[in-house]
Design a protein around this nucleic acid. Structure first.
Lengths: 232, 232
DNA sequence: ACGCGGCTTTGATCGGTGTCAATCGATCGG
DNA sequence: CCGATCGATTGACACCGATCAAAGCCGCGT
């Protein structure tokens, strides 16, 4: 298998600040890989051997307790980075939620490349800081919000993220209608709830006319202001 | 006020990878500042004007809802970074828990300096990645753990962090006796619980002989294995 | 010593969310 | 078309942790 030219080229975000020579060098160490929905890419506590850049699709980052409780600690969309550069082990499992295409690097190769290309490291730093901000605001949700607030916040977040990452046809502004890349159980794992509570809150919002649920994973936002005020 | 030489010199972590000339240059743009317990350093949603390096003391990073619920989303110990480089606004408030000394940089100065010193940016990246890992494992706690599990995890974390950051006299291995830099309410804000639940769980552990509580904020771990198994 | 105020502990009760179980509904293969 | 299967919904109930309220403890200033 040859190097994956389109991997890098398609992801402008990661390339900004790199010149052509650098892009070619990065190409040389990355390989494209397809991952189908449900397939794992990295296991929790594995030696951190892989780093990857998402080209297409959505993946979940999870941690679990021994007795099987799961928490989704992050969601990776196109152009996001996954894996743990400069670390010994990965603290989270990565599993594809939808069919996905990623550009995979061996961690050693990537680390070496990054250290000698400050432009790439800077980009990576900015992304990591932004991800940390998002993660922290999610802590607020997990620790202090009620189930209705969690659901409303989640729906608003999804309508923004799916639009801006090109996972829905509309690209300007938040989407009003979109397909969730999550099952009900996975929504529960994102919000720290049970599947039953998620289901009840969804149907409650539907009955109140705030949203519509045309299909299992489809959501249409009918009354965004209500949702915003419910989100708290 | 002159530049704060000791700010940088004392923090070996941030200096690794910088040569003397760079350290002097960084000195020139930073100022030492004392913050007393309870005093805020950065306000949530402020324009992100400050970046700082903790020299001594412990600070909390918090986000709040409009109706006053608070969640502590991070804790900064000596040598940790606070503030948001390369970002427009700070998403969290920073308030000192104990009297603290920090080395403050204007964000613009710091950003400019960092961009031209890859060694510093690399260090910052490693720290941010480590912080992201810690934050994610805290999400697991907030979303999926019960009150007893939260308390046990918290006590174990404190015994490790306070030892390794030099906030307790013992420096090798986790501390068995330490002074919390938190009030009961603040412990509740870290764990996503109420003050009453925290108090009840503490006294329960005391009655079971797992810990002792010699003073308001002092904890002695009597039976670490129990605590580990309770943490789940 | 005394009383005051803040933080903490303890008690009684309530409600939200989890748990367990049954039903429903859509998709798929025969 | 029909049953099998998997995910989602709905219902009944229990329990954990929140809420409200009172008392305790400790440090502090007078």
């Amino acid at each position: 298998m040859s190097s994956c030219e389109t991997c890098v080229v398609r992801n402008r975000a990661i390339c900004a600040g790199l010149d052509n020579q650098e892009i070619n060098a990065l190409n040389a160490i990355g390989r494209r890989r397809n991952v189908s929905a449900g397939e794992p890419l990295i296991w929790e506590d594995d030696d951190s051997l892989l780093v990857a850049n998402v080209i297409e699709g959505v993946l979940k980052l999870t941690t679990s307790t021994e007795d099987g409780r799961e928490q989704i600690v992050g969601v990776a969309y196109p152009s996001d980075f996954i894996g743990r550069p400069f670390g010994q082990t990965s603290k989270a499992s990565v599993v594809a939620l939808t069919d996905a295409r990623v550009c995979v690097f061996s961690r050693n190769d990537f680390d070496r490349f990054a250290r000698s290309h400050p432009g790439l490291e800077h980009k990576l730093l900015e992304r990591t800081l932004a991800e940390l901000d998002r993660t922290r605001s999610w802590m607020m949700l997990l620790g202090r919000k009620t189930a209705p607030e969690k659901i409303a916040t989640f729906l608003l977040e999804m309508s923004e993220r799916l639009a801006e990452t090109g996972c829905t046809p509309i690209t300007r502004g938040p989407a009003t209608r979109f397909t969730l890349p999550f099952s009900r159980q996975q929504v529960a794992d994102v919000l720290g709830l049970t599947i039953e509570t998620v289901s009840r809150q969804f149907t409650k919002l539907k009955n109140e006319g705030v949203i519509d649920l045309p299909a299992r994973r489809d959501v249409e936002i009918l009354d965004r202001p209500s949702l915003v005020s419910l989100a708290g």
